[in-house]
Every structure is written in C-alpha cells, then in structure tokens.
Design a protein around this nucleic acid. Structure first.
Lengths: 136, 136
DNA sequence: GGTGTGACGTTATCTCATTACAAGATTGCG
DNA sequence: CGCAATCTTGTAATGAGATAACGTCACACC
C-alpha cells in the first residue's frame, strides 16, 4: 500500500471511475451528475458514487464544495487534506480556483485559538465573478 | 419597499414567525425543523419557510450555514449582509459562534484581488469542538 | 478451513430545496 | 372608481442530495 502521497495506483475500480469523471471535468460535479455519466460503466445507485467520493475525499484527492453540494478534483499533487484550502467559485462560468494561503490559514487558527475552539476543518468558499466573466 | 437597516417592523407574518423560531433557538435550525415548529401557526409547506428565509437572509437578519444546510439568526444588531462573517460550529453541542474579523476579511479581499476575482460573498465555516465539548 | 475486513450492489428511505399554478392583497395611476 | 402591476401567500408535486439497512463477494491472514 503506497502511503504519504495520493494513492492513485491503489484506487478501486469505482473510485477510479469517479476520479476520472472529476478529472475530465473542468468544473465541479454533483454526485448525481457523476452517477449519470457512469451509468454506461455499470453504476446504478447514488451510494456507489458517494462511497467512492468518501474515500477520494479521505485520500485528499477530491474536495467537497459545501456551498454547491458538489465535488471537485484536487489540483495540488500533494494536497494535504488537513490543510486549510480556500476556493474561489465563479458564478458565471462555474470554474473553481483552489488556493492555499498561509496567512489565511494562520489567521483562522488564531481565531479558533482565541475562542479555545479545537479546529478540525475549515471551509472557505468565495463566490463572485472571475476575470473573464466580469468582461461579459 | 426596501429599507437601509433591518426592517424588523416591516416583517410579514410568516417572516416574523420564522424569525421568532430562529431567535428562540440557541442553535441553527433546518428549514424543515422550522416548518414543524410552526405547524400550529398554520404552516403547511416547506415553501412558506423557504420564502421567509430568503427574505430574512436578504435583510441580513439570518445567515445560512452552507456546511449544515441550516439557518441561524444573526446576533449582530446591524450586521451588513455583505460583510465577511465567519462561523465556528461545534460538532459536539451544535452551538454556533459568529465572528467578524477585519484581518480575515481583508485577507480574503486581498486574495480575491490578486486573482482579479470580483468577490460577492464569502463563506467561512470552522468545524471543531468548543471549549466545553473538549472536556467531555 | 475459518475468520475478519473492506469493497460492492440493491432497495428503500430520508432530508433539503424548487417548480408550477392559483388566489388574495396592495399600491399606483389614469 | 377601475384597472394594471406587483407582491405575498397557499398548495401540490417534484427534483436534488444523502444515507440506512440489508446482503454478497473477494481476499488477506492465521
């Protein structure tokens, strides 16, 4: 079992299929959209997608976008799933930009610390318009 | 028509009822939980709740927690709905803490600016355990 | 062989949210 | 007043997202 990095080689068949669908897409996909895309490959029920997604998220290969109820492939090769990640989501074209920023992350940790709050996971999602979509 | 501040006096009956339910609760409520609580007051369908919530969110009196699919009454009397707000959500007791932090907000604006991203709304939700729940 | 574990498949169900249509209520104005 | 425009409401139906509960299968390990 490969450790420490994205275990791409160890993915099961279903996990690979779901990962493939997300990688090919240039935007986030909902679980049901993935299901529809994989019906030809034998997928029949939402749970098949959700189980694969759970694992992929656990591996840090996929992120869940809470404000969209959708999932996106991680573009950082060695993305630590515990790290604070921020997403910029364009409401025009649907594109998602993934950014990591230490200043942001440490500010969030500071705020949590001030309140004696044991931080487990941060969700930071910025909605707006990307450069191209502002022109239109 | 619309006002410049929280138009508490201008709430419709349904909006007042929903606002009341959220204010009385010491944690976030889902739309369907609100619906159940208001059945005695004539509420019959989810849409009655969602319509009221839409307006209350628009007025800045209620915030939506994306990671919970739930809603919480704003505790800041003059909360501007455009302002960046962060939530600390305890996974133990369900309590939600609302915090505004200028350093955080300006960092998010900076990151957006760097990418020429026209920021409309920020979602910042921290999950973890509050002080009391860490003891247990 | 027996046992534990993890992935898989299927059905049903649950929660969250919206679409579509109709009826009152209110405001504004000729 | 009479009428249109707009807003709020009510109701039913449906769409979208997620999980529970069952059973099966493959495989590693002793």
């Amino acid at each position: 079992m490969n450790e420490h990095v994205h275990p791409s080689a160890d993915l099961t068949k279903n996990q690979s299929l779901v990962m493939g669908a997300l990688t090919k897409s240039n935007g986030p996909l909902s679980a049901y959209t993935i299901l529809d895309q994989l019906r030809d490959h034998g997928f029949r029920a939402p749970l098949q997608v959700y189980r694969a997604l759970d694992k992929l998220v656990e591996f840090g290969m996929v992120h869940r976008l809470e404000s969209l109820n959708a999932f996106v492939a991680c573009r950082h090769p060695d993305c630590d799933d515990n790290e604070t990640i921020a997403f910029m989501i364009c409401e025009g074209c649907g594109q998602v930009n993934e950014i990591t920023d230490n200043t942001l992350a440490s500010r969030l940790r500071f705020l949590a610390g001030q309140a004696s709050f044991a931080l487990k996971k941060s969700t930071v999602e910025l909605r707006g318009l990307c450069r191209s979509c502002q022109a239109a």
